[in-house]
Amino acid sequence: MVNVQDHTITEAKESMPATGFQVVFREFLKDKLATMSLVFLLIIIFGAFFWAPFVDKEALMQINLRTIFMEPGEGGFFLGTDQGGSDVLGQLVIGTRNSLFIAFSITAITMVIGVLLGLIAGYYGGLIDNIIMRVTDFVITLPMLMLIIVFVTIVPKYNQFTFVLILSAFYWVGTARLIRSKVLSEARRDYVNASKTMGTRDFSIMLKGILPNISSLLIVELVLNLAGNVGIETGLSYLGFGLPPNVPSLGTLVGYASNPDVISNRWWVWLPASLLILILMLAINYVGQAFRRAADSKQRLG
């Protein structure tokens, strides 16, 4: 008797279309490059976060005249040393950790702001939508990069938290716009109307009804935003307007290349960080595209 029941259950499972993470899983199974990107990303993320606490931060901050610009392998420095005589590999590990952490923070904050505003604008429509969208449209046309740089230079007591807040104040607009356009059509669906007639509160409908239905879009947006934020943070740090000097970023290492001697003769100082940023961006974007395909049944490979 028990056997028969088991049998029917497995059969029922097989006939059901793949849902949720099954789709994502199948998509990654089909696309070897996406799987490799994901594995690579996880290795980098876990590697950086677990290795970073073991790096001697004091030694990196000190200037050691005897070890200036050592080539890779020389004096026990696997990736050589920079103009201050500090180990490049150690800075690379700490920089990766900091850059990823900052990018995660900005992504989290901008996603929360963007999703909430997008939900409210798309769900209520009318005047509320109009106001939120006018503000969004305005922020999008601002010269964001310049304003961020100006804010970074004039904010008193500048540290990594203010940096995250300044960037988040600008970069929520893209998400808000996207979510709003999706919610606008979703909020006119039958299940939302049914919920309304049953007297469910608006915020319940938004968070428990609509939000799960646009979750696939959210994941794609999350991953692509993460890639964008890694690029923005490292770029600003490269220019010298990113993370404060006591918090080295991947961009800080690349920034040493503004010295003509470093860029032409000391490639080991800036090239590993540049290539790491490039590979990170490619991997995150590739994973994001796999998610996007999984979210759209027309584009699926698996």
Partner: peptide, 22 residues
């Protein structure tokens, strides 16, 4: 895809390094 993912400053530096210096 590659040009979409690559940050401006990384591409700029690589181009400067190869075509300008090397």
């Amino acid at each position: 895809f590659v040009t979409y993912a690559i940050p401006t400053f990384v591409l700029g530096l690589l181009i400067l390094f190869f075509f300008g210096y090397k």
